[in-house]
Amino acid sequence: MISFLYGYYPGLLRAALLAAGVAQLVIVCASFAIPKVLDWKAELEPVGNLTRQIFWTYAGYILISNLAFGLLSAFAGGALLDGSILASAVTGFIALWWGARLAIQFFYFDTTQMPGGRFHKLAEAALILAFVFLAVVYAAALSFNLGH
């Protein structure tokens, strides 16, 4: 039974990477709402110019990285599963990226300060599920690459 499933594993992993790519593109789209939801403009008013500009620059770069991971996984998932050392490095990096994000959600962010309400609670739960899914998919892709 296991060997039967093993034959389908690369195809399953490819489909999972496609889903991961789409999930990251959805996260990118949702990220555009965050500055408004958390009122970044008003919150960053009291800090110095440089800190404010650094904050926006870093946020922009994280968005670009998520977009790149999403596009790469959705449109070139095969390149992430070619068994090369480069594919291992990239899938390992993205697994670390989302694994760390999951740990930050649970152990660093004080979620009591997040906006309340049913919608925000649901959005937070969806986000956590997405982080778990992404970390697991890229860890599986890393394991697949290391096995080849």
């Binding site: 958390l38 970044w40 919150e43 960053l44 009291p46 800090v47 110095g48 440089l50 800190t51 904050f55 870093y58 946020a59 994280i62 990285s65 990226w97 760390a100 930050i104 660093y108 962010f109 004080d110 300060q113 997040m114």
Partner: peptide, 19 residues
Amino acid sequence: NVSRMEPLHREVFHVHCLY
């Protein structure tokens, strides 16, 4: 500079730096 932010935004800034 960061001490003038609300705790949530301070945390976001630190996470941005880490990433």
